[in-house]
Design a protein around this nucleic acid. Structure first.
Lengths: 164, 164
DNA sequence: TCCACTAGTCAAAGTTAGTGACTATCAAGA
DNA sequence: TCTTGATAGTCACTAACTTTGACTAGTGGA
């Protein structure tokens, strides 16, 4: 670590990448593995951005605005993604009996199958890491990751409110 | 955790987000904070994508292909980013004395100032998390994060080679 | 009842990433 | 020394993705 601190900046960043770099690399590589594996398992048309819908979809249906909130993606984008996924046969729009403005986005059988598979792929990825690191170390890492992420988001939200 | 396992899928994902979700949230929120802070500190035109160049740039200059390799971004995109950053006054292209095909991307004074600031902002973000989690816990988290990310990338690369 | 807010959609514009191809240059092997 | 496959960077274009503005129908609290 001290050796890295005295080298060129790019070397220092390779030896001790910051949070942003680590998060970017992890996200990119996890997404690549997930969508390549899904393609092998019969879902070749899905893209990472579809995850904003499929990643949070409940079997009983989920409102588009809820998907937008959960994923952090704009509602118009969610609408576009739902259009695509409808075309691809993963979801259907159904009226929401509790609010006549709203639609429930309901998975088709194909959509349900996909969610089961993607959850299984993610679980296998995490299990692989847990085995490599040790279950307990991995569990601690995940807990810290959740904490860091939650605090990062809270800090961002807190800042914006302070500026109001 | 067991309570979460029996709820709706979206609730389970909120209670125990997977690696992909955590990485996406952390990346997005760290980038938001970094670029908003940079804007406050006199660099309002920079975007997260510029980080593929500025995030790895050495004071003595760096080749475009090296930046592409370090950042994982296509060389043509790197070329476009360099064009933009040249226009914005952050970098210059200089011939590389060691290879007449190549160019060195060299930071201007403004570019150097930005790299110093962004490194400081990232360090402050990480210090804040270390204080919240405890220095030792944070250090362990970072080490695990580096390991998980390295192994994820190695697995992806290993897969591709196995398929060759 | 009224009105501010919300859900979802349409339309358009803006931003960013990926692919194909090319010329000059390099370096290793014959 | 010469040849050739590989590389660095750029040009040109296409594809993919995100953001902004606006609107109508519906909701719920005052």
């Amino acid at each position: 670590m001290e050796r890295g601190a005295v080298g060129r900046r790019s070397q220092r960043k390779q030896d001790d990448p910051d949070l942003g770099i680590l998060a970017a690399r992890l996200l990119f590589s996890v997404q690549k593995e997930l969508f390549e594996t899904l393609a092998e398992q019969g879902h070749p048309d899905l893209r990472p951005r579809h995850g904003a819908v499929l990643g949070y979809l409940d079997a009983e249906g989920t409102r588009a605005t809820e998907l937008s909130r959960l994923s952090g993606v704009h509602k118009q984008v969610i609408g576009n993604l739902i259009d695509e996924l409808e075309e691809l046969g993963y979801v259907e729009r159904r009226p929401d009996p509790q609010d006549r403005r709203a639609k429930l986005i309901v998975p088709t059988d194909r959509g349900l199958e996909e969610t089961v598979k993607s959850d299984a792929i993610m679980a296998a990825i995490e299990q692989r890491h847990a085995e490599a690191l040790g279950e307990r170390t991995y569990a601690r890492f995940k807990r810290a990751f959740r904490n860091v992420t939650a605090q990062q988001l809270a800090h961002l939200t807190g800042e914006e409110q302070a500026g109001t």
